[in-house]
């Protein structure tokens, strides 16, 4: 955030390991991505009356995820992998935390509160509804496959985004 106050150096002189001064920074980028994700979730939820429109919105959101990972103004503009990881973790934090808790619960760990699956579903709604749609009525170890998949999805998405946003 404080990069704006620094004198702008020619691109060739930029120190390695830091993002360009034009980038908004880790926290602002994470906030922006959270806002987009929650608004997209609300939009997809309101399209629940039509599976076709809902699917279309989901495809658009997947495209957005790809663009966000590659776009220099968002994840693609962060030079180090740990800064990209920090943005992704902040962005998906509630889904990552409760997703892990659900998986721990399923594997014999501490029981997740009733609100756990709801948090994951709300936070990642643009994608979680599709996961549920693709696994109707299937059970694994006495739990719904859709909940297994929804709990694991934020972790897989975080890894995917980290890989996708790496510099080439």
């Amino acid at each position: 955030m404080s990069d704006d106050k620094k004198p702008k150096a020619p691109p060739a002189d930029k120190p390695k390991g830091k993002s360009s001064g034009a980038h908004a920074g880790v926290f602002a980028t994470a906030g922006f991505l959270i806002l987009v994700q929650l608004l997209a979730g609300l939009g997809v939820w309101f399209l629940s009356f039509s599976i076709a429109l809902k699917s279309l919105a989901c495809v658009a959101y997947l495209l957005w995820l790809y663009l966000a990972a590659r776009w220099p103004a968002v994840l693609g503009g962060l030079d180090t992998w740990w800064r990209r990881l920090a943005v992704i973790v902040l962005w998906q934090l509630p889904a990552l935390a409760f997703g892990a808790w659900i998986l721990l619960d399923f594997c014999g760990g501490p029981p997740v509160p009733a609100a756990g699956p709801v948090v994951v579903q709300v936070w990642a709604y643009p994608l979680t509804w599709l996961i549920a749609e693709l696994s109707p009525g299937l059970m694994v170890a006495g739990k719904a496959l859709s909940i297994w998949a929804q709990a694991a999805a934020p972790w897989l998405a975080a890894i995917g985004l980290l890989v996708l946003s790496r510099k080439r």
Partner: peptide, 16 residues
């Protein structure tokens, strides 16, 4: 664009 991103982050904070 960075301004829009910063503005969005502030907007999220206010909405929250």
């Amino acid at each position: 664009m960075p301004f829009l991103i910063r503005f969005s982050a502030v907007l999220l904070l206010i909405a929250f």
